[in-house]
Design a protein around this nucleic acid. Structure first.
Lengths: 147, 147
DNA sequence: TATTGTTATACTCTATAACTATA
DNA sequence: TATAGTTATAGAGTATAACAATA
């Protein structure tokens, strides 16, 4: 909304601007998402499982910063859709290992393409310098979020 | 991670990285938020009203990219908490003007400080160059989200 | 006892559909 | 007819509290 001066904000207002930008982009991305698409958290979980292999429910909940019951429900939904499986951990009877199925991996690949279509179009309109800034910021924000 | 060379990543992977960073940061910010704090959308609405004065419900719903019924409910909650008022638009009987109350403005100011505490601490750990990249990216992403 | 996970319950935010009131 | 807003209803995602099973 153009209340962002080019002169560079103070660190204090920077936090607000980052918060606002993240929240607005999160909702915009959601509104641009194809209808039959997964939500942000299920998709993030599926993505992690595809990339890093089976994980315990606990580690997933910590990684996504939601409570174990919330993650259990997310996994329930993914399981009901045939995208992941739950199996007992052979070495620890308390644990459950969640793993992506073939269908889950396929949906993740196809879904990501559809999901990214809108943002790719916008990123393509940026200058090389702007893309570099966004790329660097994405890495920084990701590290901050995961720290 | 860190498959983002300074030479510039492919536009395709950049979209995924931005999506992931935004989604993770959104949830992290939420998990760091004080308990008695407003959610992202109510806070964004309140912020907009404080900064830009009374708005119709329609314009708020378009701005936040939620449906009018969803915005109506958000305003209901804010109104029930005494943070905003609804008044009829003098010039158009169909319209409702939503305005922040004094309590709403105060809560926004105090709440933002609390909300930003975590992110300010993280931003303070960055180098000047990194902060610059984050600042520029915040403006770019904000413009993308609002476009 | 500590850890892992689930069930039960409730709250917030969101959507679509159907409706009222005003222009 | 078209626009602004509400009510009704449903679904996703989240939380806390209480519980069971395993270490």
């Amino acid at each position: 909304m153009s209340d962002s001066p080019d002169t560079g904000p103070s660190a204090d207002s920077l936090a607000s601007e980052v918060q606002a930008a993240v929240a607005r982009m999160y909702r915009r991305a959601r509104s641009e998402m194809p209808d039959n698409e997964l939500g942000e958290t299920p998709l993030s979980v599926l993505s992690h499982l595809v990339k890093h292999g089976p994980q315990s429910l606990r580690s997933l909940s910590e990684r996504e910063r939601v409570t174990p019951p919330a993650m259990s429900q997310v996994v329930n939904a993914l399981q009901a859709s045939g995208l992941v499986t739950r199996s007992p951990d052979p070495g620890d009877g308390r644990r459950v290992l969640v793993a992506a199925t073939g269908a889950g991996a396929s949906l993740w690949i196809d879904g990501r393409r559809a999901r990214d279509a809108w943002m790719n179009a916008r990123l393509a309109e940026l200058s090389a310098d702007q893309r570099r800034a966004v790329s660097e910021a994405a890495r920084i924000l990701r590290a901050m979020a995961d720290s």
